[in-house]
């Protein structure tokens, strides 16, 4: 099963839309609630990063009986130093975004903790691709 969601940069009102839709699907498939939580935490953080840091993006979620694979692809500034971005507390979020309670620099670390596999590739000035895989019986 494949699902696609569009993400608009800057549109915080819609942030979490894809994570909430995927949560419903996984619930219907009777996936272990603890695994569902891990998937939606990672997906939500990826989705919000597109909203907060990029211009627009597209999320593809591919679900088979053993795992969910999620690809979050955006057009945006890209990440110049991925190792630095992965560090807890590192953030380039604007002051407006910080006032809303984003910008703790915890999103990427949350993704790493909650996905079985996380792969990030980025092209500065073009965009970022984040791939997450989580197995259902992990």
């Amino acid at each position: 099963m494949e699902f696609k969601y569009d993400v608009e940069g800057g549109n915080f009102a819609k942030a979490g839309h894809a994570a909430s839709a995927v949560k419903k699907v996984l619930k219907q498939l009777n996936v272990n609630p603890k695994v569902i939580k891990r998937v939606v935490v990672a997906l939500y953080e990826g989705e919000v990063n597109v909203v907060a840091h990029a211009f627009k993006g597209r999320i593809i979620a591919d679900i088979d009986p053993s795992r969910i694979y999620i690809k979050i692809e955006d057009q945006g500034p890209g990440i110049p130093d991925i190792d630095l971005a992965m560090q807890v507390g590192y953030s380039t979020a604007s002051s407006k975004v910080r006032e809303m309670g984003f910008g703790a620099g915890m999103g990427l670390p949350n993704m790493k903790k909650n996905a079985d596999k996380l792969q990030i590739s980025s092209n500065v000035g073009k965009g970022t691709v984040v791939e997450l895989t989580t197995y259902f019986n992990s």
Partner: peptide, 22 residues
């Protein structure tokens, strides 16, 4: 929000000064 996302648990009461939809 990322702190709550990463560390809160099901069934807890979340105390905050944030008021927006996220």
């Amino acid at each position: 929000l990322s702190d709550v996302m990463g560390n809160s648990e099901e069934g807890q009461v979340w105390i905050t000064l944030q008021t927006h939809k996220n």
